[in-house]
Nucleic acid binder design. Structure first.
Lengths: 119, 119
DNA sequence: CTCCGTTATGTTCGCACGGGTATAATGACC
DNA sequence: GGTCATTATACCCGTGCGAACATAACGGAG
């Protein structure tokens, strides 16, 4: 599923794509950068790099982090982060819906694949 | 322009994105793999690799090549190639149109960029 | 039979990217 | 003051990708 991947390039050259969006969602759901990274099978280092990039591409950060304390630190989405994620998901949904016909045709004319790999 | 990039993943794991689509269009317009590659600022080798990938992802090739002869060789799109390109462009157009609102909102909330870079 | 621009293929090299690892630093709680 | 999971940062290293370069094959034109 989700055969169609979208990458939106911002004026400054940075971009928002499936990877950052998924990470954003993972942080929202797990409350932790490292947990979200683990869940996606990526190193903490890479996840943190993406967080840094995300926070730099908007005037104010999308992710708020805290260290130590009762919960041993963690990360949450700011209001801006939640909005950005929602907008990306909405964009994705509308794009897939609008292009369903073309997507179907392209998939239909693609090289036939063995049924054993169907899920 | 064309801030939104689409990548469609086919069942066999290969994918059709902006790079291959542009190359496809370049070949259609120039009638040559090397000319299309030069126009896009990529090495012939890379362009040819993409052509190979394109021809392998569908049951029959999208690009037909010829060597030597009066025109010193060249490449043209097959009917399938033209159709695939048209479908991708249509998909792109519909996706952008459908998500124009979300794209606009995301761009609007992005970090402000200096007007000197506007074109 | 040479010339020409293209397709087709191999080889080498530089470099960016991500993984792995290590190490601070944080701060509420016991 | 020690514990704990997390954030934050630095360093090394393998690997893959693409550029650059080199070379062959092609086949009609002249």
């Amino acid at each position: 599923m989700d055969k169609l991947k979208l990458r939106l390039t911002l004026p400054d050259g940075s971009w928002l794509g499936p990877g950052k969006a998924d990470l954003l969602q993972g942080i929202a759901e797990t409350g932790s950068i490292s947990a979200a990274g683990r869940r996606m099978g990526m190193s903490y280092k890479r996840a943190w790099g993406l967080v840094e990039a995300l926070n730099r591409m908007f005037p104010s950060p999308l992710i708020e982090t805290s260290r130590g304390g009762a919960g041993h630190g963690g990360a949450t989405l700011t209001a801006l982060g939640q909005k950005a994620l929602a907008l990306y998901r909405a964009l994705q949904g509308k794009a897939v819906a609008a292009g369903a016909d073309e997507i179907g045709q392209l998939l239909a004319m693609a090289r036939q694949f063995d049924m054993s790999e169907r899920k």
